[in-house]
């Protein structure tokens, strides 16, 4: 591994100060970033670890909102987010057990991998992404492939999920990586249903608004009959064509609705 400096602040304020350096990069659980560094796809001269900051860890309820600290590992969400079972189930199927013990929700949301699980939960739940300086609605936060509303040096300190009446996440697993070939998160709230799709699009996570309208009127798998997603802009690779992924979106959405209702 190439040489870099390593800092491990104990508070958010210290982390933000350490990240003011242009060459600094935040490191959360490291399950994506450390392999990336080894391949020299990124070569920051300073890493600022976010995993020793107590105020960024833990799961709690505030009214009907589930709050998860940015540096909370997936395994902790799986074990402690029982107030939002679909989210706990999603966390329990990310990667493998050892990855879940290190990888964090803030790291996943900040990286915004187009096949990551958490972005679909955040978008379908209308979550609020809390950073060291502001609160960002999920609809404004995810901005395309590995792109988010985060500014340089800004870190995700907490993610707040309004708990839905019913929800489910269905992941069609890419068998080698365990990422989603297509993943669909469906969440039903009093004011309507939201459907977010990960793994499928060249633009990263997105809402399937046609399905949302149909499901808001009739929350059952049959409400999706006749609806389809265009293959334009879908990812095509050796694991699946754009047409295959587009078709899977419909299938996984139906399964999610059937499991949630």
């Amino acid at each position: 591994m190439y040489a870099f400096d390593f800092e491990q602040p104990k508070t958010i304020a210290e982390a933000v100060a350490a990240l003011a350096d242009d060459e600094a990069q935040p490191l959360s659980g490291g399950q994506t970033l450390i392999p990336t560094l080894k391949q020299r796809l990124a070569m920051p001269s300073k890493l600022v670890s976010l995993t020793a900051i107590p105020e960024m860890k833990g799961v709690c309820m505030n009214g009907n909102t589930l709050c998860i600290g940015g540096a909370t590992p997936h395994a902790v969400v799986a074990a402690e987010a029982s107030a939002y079972p679909a989210l706990a189930a999603l966390a329990s199927n990310i990667g493998d057990p050892a990855v879940r013990n290190r990888g964090t929700i803030g790291g996943s949301i900040a990286n915004n991998d187009p096949a990551a699980c958490y972005p679909s939960a955040a978008l379908a739940s209308g979550a609020t992404i809390v950073t060291n300086s502001r609160e960002i609605a999920a609809d404004d936060y995810f901005q395309g492939l590995f792109q988010t509303a985060l500014e340089e040096g800004e870190i995700v300190t907490e993610v707040r999920f309004p708990v839905p009446q019913a929800a489910n996440y269905q992941k069609f697993v890419q068998p080698a990586s365990r990422f989603a070939l297509v993943g669909v998160f469906v969440a039903k709230y009093a004011d309507g249903v939201r459907v977010a799709v990960t793994g499928a699009s060249n633009d990263g996570v997105f809402r399937w608004t046609e399905a949302e309208a149909a499901l808001s009127a009739n929350f059952s798998p049959s409400a999706l009959d006749g609806l389809s997603v265009s293959a334009d802009g879908m990812i095509g690779d050796l694991h699946g064509t754009p047409e295959y992924r587009a078709h899977l979106i419909g299938v996984m959405t139906k399964r999610a609705v059937a499991a949630a209702s």
């Binding site: 390593f6 490291g30 450390i34 670890s49 995993t51 020793a52 050892a98 990855v99 013990n101 290190r102």
Partner: peptide, 14 residues
């Protein structure tokens, strides 16, 4: 907790 030790910095295990 089971962890992949190739993907964690030694300083983080202090």
């Amino acid at each position: 907790k089971a962890v992949k030790s190739c993907t964690m910095m030694a300083s983080e295990a202090d």
